[in-house]
Write a protein that binds this DNA or RNA. Sequence first.
DNA 1: CATGAATGAGATTTCATTCAT
DNA 2: GATGAATGAAATCTCATTCAT
Lengths: 200, 200, 200, 200
Amino acid sequence: MSVRRAQARQRRESLLDAALAVFADKGVDGASVKDIAAAAGVTPGLLYHYFPSKEGLLVTMLAERGFMPELRERLRVGHQRPAREVLVELATGFGRMLADRADLVRLFLSGAATDPRIREQLTALVAEGQHLLADYLATRVETGELRPHDTVTAAQMLLSAIVLGQVTDRVPDAAVLVELILHGLIASTSTTSQSPPARN
Amino acid sequence: MSVRRAQARQRRESLLDAALAVFADKGVDGASVKDIAAAAGVTPGLLYHYFPSKEGLLVTMLAERGFMPELRERLRVGHQRPAREVLVELATGFGRMLADRADLVRLFLSGAATDPRIREQLTALVAEGQHLLADYLATRVETGELRPHDTVTAAQMLLSAIVLGQVTDRVPDAAVLVELILHGLIASTSTTSQSPPARN
Amino acid sequence: MSVRRAQARQRRESLLDAALAVFADKGVDGASVKDIAAAAGVTPGLLYHYFPSKEGLLVTMLAERGFMPELRERLRVGHQRPAREVLVELATGFGRMLADRADLVRLFLSGAATDPRIREQLTALVAEGQHLLADYLATRVETGELRPHDTVTAAQMLLSAIVLGQVTDRVPDAAVLVELILHGLIASTSTTSQSPPARN
Amino acid sequence: MSVRRAQARQRRESLLDAALAVFADKGVDGASVKDIAAAAGVTPGLLYHYFPSKEGLLVTMLAERGFMPELRERLRVGHQRPAREVLVELATGFGRMLADRADLVRLFLSGAATDPRIREQLTALVAEGQHLLADYLATRVETGELRPHDTVTAAQMLLSAIVLGQVTDRVPDAAVLVELILHGLIASTSTTSQSPPARN
DNA sequence: CATGAATGAGATTTCATTCAT
DNA sequence: GATGAATGAAATCTCATTCAT
């Protein structure tokens, strides 16, 4: 009985993986149920035992294979550590994550135009990302490391540059990016002289 | 002779317009050739007199209705005017342009995932945009208004924030954005002289 | 389990039969997929479950309904029996076979002009036919019944006359044909003068 | 006025040539009017000034570009010359002609199955060819060079071998072919022993 | 659980022919 | 004569989904 369950879960996972791969590769509309089933090593009919429809498979896949979990993990940075360190780390890691999951990135891009569900997820994703990063920035403002500023917009700037850089194959250098950002964020005039903007 | 030609050109334009409208409305895959032809007041067959395929129509439409011309116009900013003024103006205008043509932005992004020709167009677009803006920044560096810096990355940051903001419906405030940017760019008081981390 | 399989095979056969009938009736281009499906009592879509395309159906049909098996059977003649008897029998039977399946002959010839796979099949068929007949002739040379000669060309002559005769509706008389052939092949010396069986 | 006429005739010829080439290349159904017009360097519309329809163009082309004239020329052999010489010459020349006009050969083959007009032409062609050759053979019978025999079937054998050889890329050697034929036709008795040209 | 045969609706594309210019 | 825009009909093929086995 438990074996059955395990097999079943396995199948489900296979299908989700296959769905991600094939959707990313051919786009949501371009991918046929047959393609996905084949990629998962099953027959089309079986897909309908695990998911109600192609649509349902897409939704579930987005929920279970989405960026959210990893994104949260990655942005749960130590709020006590200095900004430059944290931001460079984050920019690097975030960029790498996007590169690692190029599948999903492509899918989001191609799907955002067409599919309201994907669009929604993308928006939520961006919102959450900005929010988490902005929160961190706010704590650094409180410590006095950073000057008061519109942290959400600042977060947006950083993340946007990384995401779009990924998409257009013009990945910016993390250190440079952070350096540029920081010189608009650090709260002092003369402080700067104490910390000669290095570049990793 | 000329009348015929003119009418033909007209038809072609109609088809491109219809394509833009219908693609934007239903997505590339969701839009049928029949839909587009109907929107242009034409039989589906005629579409193939003017374009080789649905895909070809999409590519051509993006090329001819693309942002390039307007982008160039908009970035051909007065190189003598001060940065803050110019950048706010540009951020505002650029953002508005994208907003006005949100359809196109989405089609570009989604198409880029599928069609290499569209990806190429998009890449060229981004490159050109960054290049033009970076050039302007460089002249301001020369005048001493801005400190030496990696102008390309700076340009990318500004533009990315606007574009992605558009896509995710989180348009940043132009003034705020520029203010943030500038505080890393302005060749302010004494700091800069001490730390001239240039690249460009 | 087996029932399903059997039914599926049955369907496939139906489609092949229908293809042969309809192609023969209307020509390859004149026959629509719809026609063939209808003739098989099936919806057009199903055809693509069994065959990759109309063209693929044609190729497969020619391969599976082709002459090869029967040809081999027919040419596996008794190598011990005298030439005249064997050849007349063969010419008659071969001609009859072609006549019975005139449709197939025409499809082969016309398809060979278009599809390389069909051309290949046809070439193999011809080669095999010549080879088998030539082999038989060679054994008769060894027994001394026939004089040494280019057996392949001789085989080609006989078979060509029958095939082309079929295509152009000018089927030659088997006995006459063989008689003509033999009088160049028989190793005798003066026999010929004794039996001048003319016609015309 | 005469210039116009000349140009018009030129156009017509171009179209016929183009039709032959394109029909042969793609088959009658596979060739579109647009293809043919393009191959002739004109627009589809113009084709309808010179011919009533695609069908009409085909018929006219077959009539004006058919094998008949050349075939007749080639078979109008000197009836006084000895058989071996004439037949070898003829087999060689005929084979070469078919090779030179591979276009037409292919068209006849592919079209014979579908198009009754082409079928008809092919039949007529073969009939005429056999007739002409048979007539020659008959005169040689009268001179005593050849023994009495079914000259039509003999002619058919020779021509079939050449035609099918052409089609299946197994062109037989003209000399060998004629040698084989002759040894069934020559009215001699002991000749055979004098010239036992074997091959195999 | 799992298969894969079957369907029906619809999508893209082709094409011979006509005719205003 | 010559063009090429325009049409309408049809053809090939795809696909999500269902269901008997």
